[in-house]
Structures are given as structure tokens and as C-alpha cells.
């Protein structure tokens, strides 16, 4: 056997391996979709059926109806996503600029604090935060969920700082010689160049808000203020058991926007995750 055929064989094996893996990764999606289109009695068979005997599209409108305020939840979630994305992008860019493009005494020591706060998981601070928002009278409103995003989360600051550091210093210096202020440099030089990184931060924040469960769970009290994630969970855990076909239909509806967003912004997603890969 020549080395060329050996190589070809190796590549073929690799291909098969990847293909099998891909099928395994796709299966849960397929199962979710298949269940979401089954009639109730076909979801409950032992062993399970792979495919519905006939496709029951009706499950989708029914699931929306069962979840009560599905559209309201969607609106709430979109509102929160918009606010947190705006807040995060603005505040993180500012802070990251301050940590990367301006030399001030003690900067790097303070930056260690930024890194340190990345280590605090939300459950550790959630009780006092709840108390704080309670004092402010914000429980039951959206504020506890989006106001903090205007205060530059550590992870995003870190990410943007890494990016800002890669921009050549000469750019700022040239602008300074032209008489530009720090602020003008930020707006006119750095931000335009940082567009891909800003999009990444925006995407991450969007995902995080779309995903968030524990925050809404403790801050939102009024059912009509729920987010999709919370609404889905409330629907799943309501008394009297589980209608798997509706639940899967509802889940599909919650997943779809994220997947669609991904397909439109694929490039940034992959780039963004790549740059967060701890090259610091």
C-alpha cells in the first residue's frame, strides 16, 4: 500500500468519524423537532417512536396558546436584550479604552481587579444584590436585569481590552498630534476599528440575556413580565405533568431565534469566541 492510499484511507476514516459525530450532535435537535410534531399519544410510547405517524403542525399554535403570554414574553425578552446589549457595548468599550489606551498610574493593578471579579459567580452575590435592589424598590421590575449591564461587566471589558491593545499605538499618537482629544480618538479612531469586537460583545450579551434564568427567577414577580426562558420553565413545571409535544414545540420556538441570529452573524461568532480563547 502506497503512502498516498494510506493517507487517503486515513482521511476517509476521519471523515466517517466526523460524520458520525455530527449525526450524534444533530440527533437531540431532530428528536426535539420530531416530538414537537407528534400527537400526544405518540410521545408516550415505549419504546419511543422516531417519527410522528402524521405531522401535527397544530402543536405550535397550541403550545403558544398554552404558554399564555408567549408574545408578551418574547417582547419582554427582546426589550431586555436590546437594553443590555446597548448598555454592555457602551460601558464596556469605555472601560476597556480606559484600561488599554490611556496610561495612568495604577492602571494595571486595577485591571487585576477586573480579572478577579470574573471569578465571582452570580450565586455568590445574588442574595445581597436582591437586597440591594429591594431597597431601591426595583423588585418586580426589569431594572435589576438591565441596569447592571450599564456598568461594564468584567468579561466584556477584558475581551475588548485585549482587542484594543492590538491596535497600533501610532494611530492614537498621530491623532493626538492632529489635536484630537482622548474622546475624539475613542469615537473616531478606536471604535470604528473595533467594530468586529463590539459586535462580538453585543452577540455575547444578547445570548446571555436570552439565556438568563436565575436573574429573572428572583427579580421578576409578575407573570406578564416574564422572559421566554422563565415562561418556558413556568410552563414546564406547572402542576399536572408534562405535555412533551407542546413543551418541545415551545422549546423549538425559543431556540429558533438564536439559531437564525447565528446564521446571519456566523463570522463574528466564531471570530469572537476565538479571541476570547484566553490569549491574555
Amino acid at each position: 500500500m502506497s503512502s498516498k492510499t494510506a493517507q487517503l484511507l486515513q482521511r476517509f476514516c476521519l471523515y466517517v468519524l466526523l460524520l458520525v459525530g455530527a449525526v450524534v450532535f444533530i440527533l437531540p435537535f431532530a428528536w426535539m423537532l420530531s416530538t414537537s410534531l407528534k400527537p400526544l399519544n405518540e410521545t408516550m410510547t415505549v419504546p419511543p417512536r422516531w417519527l410522528p405517524s402524521h405531522i401535527q403542525w397544530d402543536n405550535y399554535p397550541r403550545a403558544i396558546e398554552e404558554m399564555k403570554m408567549f408574545w408578551r414574553y418574547t417582547g419582554n425578552t427582546v426589550y431586555l436584550c436590546a437594553m443590555t446589549v446597548i448598555g454592555t457595548v457602551l460601558s464596556s468599550a469605555l472601560a476597556a479604552y480606559g484600561f488599554s489606551r490611556i496610561e495612568w498610574r495604577g492602571r494595571d493593578k486595577v485591571f487585576v481587579l477586573v480579572l478577579a471579579t470574573m471569578m465571582i459567580p452570580f450565586p455568590v452575590v445574588m442574595v445581597p444584590l436582591y437586597t440591594l435592589f429591594r431597597e431601591l424598590g426595583w423588585i418586580g421590575s426589569f431594572k435589576p436585569l438591565w441596569v447592571p449591564s450599564f456598568m461594564a461587566g468584567a468579561f466584556n471589558v477584558f475581551l475588548l481590552r485585549q482587542f484594543f491593545l492590538t491596535l497600533p499605538k501610532e494611530l492614537s499618537e498621530a491623532a493626538k498630534i492632529d489635536g484630537a482629544s482622548e474622546w475624539q480618538i475613542f469615537c473616531q479612531v478606536v471604535l470604528p476599528l473595533a467594530k468586529p469586537a463590539l459586535i462580538v460583545v453585543a452577540l455575547f450579551q444578547f445570548m446571555a440575556t436570552w439565556n438568563d434564568f436565575l436573574g429573572p427567577l428572583i427579580y421578576l414577580t409578575d407573570q406578564s413580565d416574564f422572559t421566554l426562558a422563565l415562561g418556558l420553565q413556568a410552563y414546564q413545571s406547572r402542576e399536572g405533568g408534562t405535555d412533551w409535544h407542546y413543551l418541545m414545540a415551545a422549546s423549538t420556538l425559543v431556540v429558533i431565534p438564536v439559531v437564525v441570529l447565528f446564521f446571519f452573524t456566523q463570522r463574528y461568532f466564531v471570530e469572537g469566541i476565538a479571541t476570547t480563547g484566553g490569549k491574555g
Binding site: F133, R134, G137, I139, G140, Y219, T221
Partner: peptide, 10 residues
């Protein structure tokens, strides 16, 4: 929900 809302003053 009721406990959270009551504690939150609303």
C-alpha cells in the same frame, strides 16, 4: 413570587 413581591414592597 408572592414572598419576593411582598419583600420588594410591591
Amino acid at each position: 413570587k408572592l414572598m419576593l413581591a411582598t419583600a420588594g414592597g410591591n
